[in-house]
């Protein structure tokens, strides 16, 4: 792909990333960080690509490590964020019984 096109996408994504989270409330800092953490687990796709044309024991071993690590990042990240947010879901109205 055109290097200039890649650079354009990169620069525009910086602004989008900054903009979309600018109004987050303190309460959600932890889940947001955790969710963003899961998103960079997409490096799994990169790990699969490079391993698919890796040759020799060294490259293959590093490739397998990369895939294991990124799968941990992606799957673990989304699951733990979901668990966290599960606690925030609106409960049945717990009015005080007084």
């Amino acid at each position: 792909m055109d290097q200039l096109a890649l650079l354009t996408i990169f620069i525009l994504s910086i602004f989008v990333g900054y903009e979309v989270v600018s109004k987050v409330s303190t309460v959600l800092h932890t889940p947001l960080m955790s969710g963003a953490n899961a998103i960079h687990g997409i490096i799994l796709v990169g790990a699969i690509i490079v391993t698919s044309h890796a040759e020799g024991a060294v490259e293959l071993t590093i490739g397998a490590i990369a895939i294991v690590l990124s799968a941990i990042n992606m799957v673990g990240g989304f699951v733990v964020t979901d668990r966290m947010l599960d606690l925030f879901k609106p409960k049945k109205k717990v009015e005080d019984k007084a």
Binding site: I9, I14, G17, Y18, V24, L32, I39, I42, G46
Partner: peptide, 21 residues
């Protein structure tokens, strides 16, 4: 490097939003 738009966008989003956070 891999010319993969998804990695580029996903990574940059986290980089930018993470810096703000």
């Amino acid at each position: 490097v891999l010319e993969n738009v998804l990695l580029l966008v996903g990574g940059t989003l986290v980089g930018a939003s993470g810096t703000l956070l």
